[in-house]
Nucleic acid binder design. Structure first.
Length: 576
RNA sequence: CGGGACGUGGCGCAGUUUGGUAGCGCAUCUGCUUUGGGAGCAGAGGGCCGCUGGUUCAAAUCCAGUCGUCCCGACCA
């Protein structure tokens, strides 16, 4: 049992001015976290309790799935990262520093190198595999832009796990086990989530899924099919292939140049020429790690840079800026076109639907009309390169796709041999042959998950915790602690529940009732018992559900029993 | 890194335009009253106005630099 008078949970009525999203605001107001520097926080007692609850669920499910907990260091020697090649690739997000002897280190943002190092040293035989190691550990990433409290911090707790198998088949099984464990984890935390197909980013690997908590404040956009189970990050979402040529005139004559003074954007040009945006072919110039590339797309769509990067197999791609555009096309941006362009050229599938259309003329204040793909220019290839849109057909079943916002709380990757090859993590198979092991990696942001839970469960009065991760299960409010009967009844109930293993938060402060009620709502403890003078004198107490606001009067003799029932019911709702 | 804004008691803010030595609300402490949805009265404590330098008889206020923070964008396990 925790007594409020002996607990540091400094709640505030007013919202700190730098908190923008609801989870950040409520965590600050509830006294759960305090900021130390940008993206760096102290977890106050109540906030830490929530994190520990999340961690407990993580441990239970990871252990259940056969993973073993380890704890790796936060400080990692540069050599390991140089071995994997990421020392040079990871960029400024990796915080680097030197020790007294001038040796280089970094603060680990993720631990593929360290865990692979362990496995290559300790695992010799196929008999020791598969193995799955995880940890819950403090990570540091020097984010370009930390924001929204625990949602995107620089220092944060992450559950990161890594699987090692002898072959792809086994790796796939390990991946599936983690995928299933993740579903159980987020279900137990009462979250509305989707597992969606995702880009592998700079972790690398062959395929991955992100676990997204649906929330408008989410930083990611995801699409999901209204009919089947397909879901994907918009960065990854497949767009339908286009077979039919439906746009423009089949008997277009030779292309013609038209004056388009000052018209650069799709809206300006299509408006000026009196045509639809999808009758334009947009030409975007990219600088990439594999050279300059022109990317074509129908004017009705946007290019997806992640897909472009993936298609090219490039480390990075970047939309070219004015001077570079001028160098490649001879004109300021806004007038680039594929005709006569001597740059490597690829086109999105949407361009296939165009029989004839308008393009930039590579000349200031001019565009070309009646341009025919295949006749007037020929891209190296057509590929899926555009951004998906709400209403697009599902690539699996053809039904409609919806776009929603999500918070990425977990991410699972099939890494293949990317790290095990670089670090030479090998084991002998049954024939005595050396095999490079196949890896998977699996992460969950602990604080971010807690923040996501608030984003999804709150109202005007404060947080509404799912009981599985609430800082406490029950709060007891004696309305007036100076009334001896009230105080006695409250003490008795608190001791009673405590003895039954319930996590009780006892508001024994000499505060006015209004303050106690407001604080209880703010902190969002799922079950509240109120003991007022009149009720206690009549032999009653009051039981209230934070989520529904539903309140029932219960005889004092049955109160503990009823509280237990309500707690049990709430636990069952979480499947905990 | 580009754009915008802000740094004044613990929190939220005013004061800066027009320089004259710091104020309001909440919170905190003491006393009395009050006790079912952020009480009332009386009193008290707490601020080198982010930092450094400059202008001036005089700087929270004007100028320069610097640090920090937030928002939008780019970026992103």
């Amino acid at each position: 049992m925790i007594r409020y008078t002996q607990y540091l949970m400094p709640t505030t009525k007013e919202t700190p001015s730098d908190a923008e999203v609801v989870s950040h605001r409520l965590m600050l107001r509830g006294g759960f976290i305090r900021k130390v520097a940008s993206g760096i926080y102290t977890y106050m007692p109540a906030g830490l309790r929530v994190l520990r609850k999340v961690e407990r669920i993580l441990r239970e499910e990871m252990d259940r799935a056969g993973a073993q907990e380890v704890l790796m260091p936060a400080v990692i020697p540069a050599e390991l990262w140089q071995e994997s090649g990421r020392w040079d690739l990871y960029g400024k997000e990796l915080l680097r520093f030197k020790d007294r002897a001038d040796r280089e280190f970094c603060l680990g943002p993720t631990h593929e190198e360290v865990v692979t190092d362990i496995v290559r040293r300790e695992v010799r035989s196929y008999r020791q595999l598969p193995i799955n190691l995880y940890q819950i550990q403090d990570k540091f990433r020097d984010e370009i832009r930390p924001r929204f409290g625990l949602m995107r911090g620089r220092e944060f707790f992450m559950k990161d796990g890594y699987s090692f198998d002898m072959d792809e088949e086994g790796a796939k099984e390990s991946y599936q086990k983690m995928y299933d464990a993740y579903c159980r984890i987020f279900r137990r935390m009462g979250l509305d989530f989707r597992a969606v197909e995702a880009d592998t980013g700079n972790i690398g690997g062959s395929s991955s899924h992100e676990f997204m908590v649906i929330a408008d404040s989410g930083e990611d956009s995801i699409v999901s099919c209204v009919s089947c189970a397909y879901g994907a990050n918009v960065e990854k979402a497949e767009c339908p292939s286009v077979a039919e040529k439906t746009v423009g005139s089949k008997d277009a004559g030779p292309f013609r140049k038209v004056e388009t003074p000052g018209r650069r954007t799709i809206e300006e040009v299509s408006g000026f020429l009196g045509i639809r945006p999808d009758e334009l072919i947009k030409t975007l110039l990219f600088e990439t790690s594999v050279g300059d590339v022109a990317v074509l797309v129908s004017g009705a769509f946007e290019i997806n840079e992640v897909k472009v990067r993936g298609f090219l197999g490039a480390e990075w791609v970047r939309l070219a800026e004015e001077p570079k555009v001028r160098e490649l096309t001879g004109t300021p941006s806004g007038f680039a076109g594929p005709v006569g362009l001597s740059v490597r050229m690829i086109a999105d599938l949407s361009v296939r639907s165009i029989v004839s259309g308008a393009t930039g003329a590579n000349e200031k204040d001019a565009h070309l009309v009646d341009v025919v793909p295949g006749r007037d220019f020929e891209p190296e290839t057509y590929a899926d390169l555009r951004m998906v849109r709400e209403g697009d057909p599902c690539p699996r079943c053809g039904a409609e796709l919806r776009v929603s916002r999500g918070i990425e709380v977990g991410h699972v990757f099939r890494l293949g041999r990317k790290y095990s090859e670089k670090l030479r993590a090998v084991a002998l198979d049954a024939d005595g042959k050396e095999i490079v092991v196949v890896m998977g990696c699996y992460g969950i942001g602990v604080g971010r998950t807690a923040a996501a839970a608030i984003e999804q469960h709150n109202d005007a009065d404060g947080m509404i915790w799912p009981i599985s991760i609430a800082p406490f299960e029950v709060t007891i409010i004696p309305v007036n602690v100076k009334n001896a009967d009230v105080a006695a009844a409250a003490e008795k109930l608190a001791a009673d529940l405590d003895a039954r293993g319930v996590e009780v938060f006892f508001d024994d402060r000499e505060e006015r009732p209004g303050i106690k009620f407001k604080d209880a709502d703010l902190v969002g403890i799922p079950v509240r018992v109120t003991l007022g003078e009149k009720n206690v004198a009549d032999g009653f107490g009051e039981l209230r559900d934070r989520k529904t606001g539903e309140t029932v009067r219960v005889e004092l003799s049955r109160l503990a029993e009823e509280v237990m029932k309500m707690v049990a019911r709430k636990k069952a709702e979480c499947g905990a």
